[in-house]
Design a protein around this nucleic acid. Sequence first.
DNA 1: TCTACAAGTTGACGGTGTCAACATTGACTA
DNA 2: TAGTCAATGTTGACACCGTCAACTTGTAGA
Lengths: 200, 200
Amino acid sequence: MAAKKPFHHGDLKRALLDATLKLIDAETVSGVTIRAVAKATGVSHAAPTKHYSDRRQLITAAANAVFGEIVELTHQRLATSEHPARERLISMAHVLYEYALEHPNRYEFIWRRDLVDHDNPDIMTTMNKLYYGYDMPVDESAMDTGFDSDTLAVLIWSLVHGYVDLRMKGMFEERQDLKTGQDRLPAMIELLREAFFRTP
Amino acid sequence: MAAKKPFHHGDLKRALLDATLKLIDAETVSGVTIRAVAKATGVSHAAPTKHYSDRRQLITAAANAVFGEIVELTHQRLATSEHPARERLISMAHVLYEYALEHPNRYEFIWRRDLVDHDNPDIMTTMNKLYYGYDMPVDESAMDTGFDSDTLAVLIWSLVHGYVDLRMKGMFEERQDLKTGQDRLPAMIELLREAFFRTP
DNA sequence: TCTACAAGTTGACGGTGTCAACATTGACTA
DNA sequence: TAGTCAATGTTGACACCGTCAACTTGTAGA
């Protein structure tokens, strides 16, 4: 049984998702065509429509998987003792940064509004898990300056995302004077830490 | 002469560019198809290829126009005396932020690596004009903390871009606790100003 | 065992970017 | 002034794409 080519695949939905992520890694999200995914999975060109109504739904599922990975990494990092809970924001910044550098194509496409439905229920629950690590990130007592902690959270999130985004787009490589210190995020985070957090 | 439909358009290249920008404003960059631009300009479906070899080249030209607008606005703002030169970074942050809010579709597509060739010579010279306003932005004497001024420049640029990008993607609207203070950038910039710049 | 439904296949449709072949025009040259 | 030729525009074709309808195959449950 299940010899060579069973008519039914078994777990085609999952296989399509894997093929999608593989395509994204290999040639960015623009390489993700329904027909290419179908061919990579060894299935007819319209088969994916039985599991994902849309190209957008397929890519949204892939984005959900990526966000899930990031949530997982975040929880792992927050569990270690070397990263005190009162500096959760700092920890999350590093996780995001390292993930983006390691999987640039993935980090890029998950923010694409036209390809990813961020209102999708699955996406929203995954995002909530991520936000949950953000929800009590800055213990008020850990702040020197008395600035609004929500503002500080948005600041750090924006900073990390912005730096990663611009860096992946090569915006900092073209300038002579910025060419040297390639990896600027740690310095920036340290700068913020000294400005807004007590030294332990 | 030049009665109704002269065979030659006159300045088709410019007309195509205008139509492209209009389409971007109206329905995001995904609405920019070569054939749609051609139709909007009243010309045959393949005419644009005589002026822009590629869809990418066409959209790159549009991006160059947008960057040019931003450069212009930046120079205007820096020329006014109410924004002291030693706070150039702050001024640029506001320009970028206001432009992004006013023309969200434009701000979004100019960063799309797959659609815009950032290595294009025109783009690079335009970007250099923008960077030039960045080149001596932070007078060392204006800094309190003695942090590396390049790092500070990258920090502010990243912060603004990241905040605008995430905000346009609706990432801050979904959280109950962040819903109130919609316009957070001024507060963040003020926060940085107080942390890193002398009060005048 | 029969039957209904889920899971794949096939073929078709309109829309897309791009190319080659052709038509028109205007500017330069003789 | 006549002639030519490159730039500019048109037409038609091709492969690829997403999507849908109609069909086939397998399977689970009454």
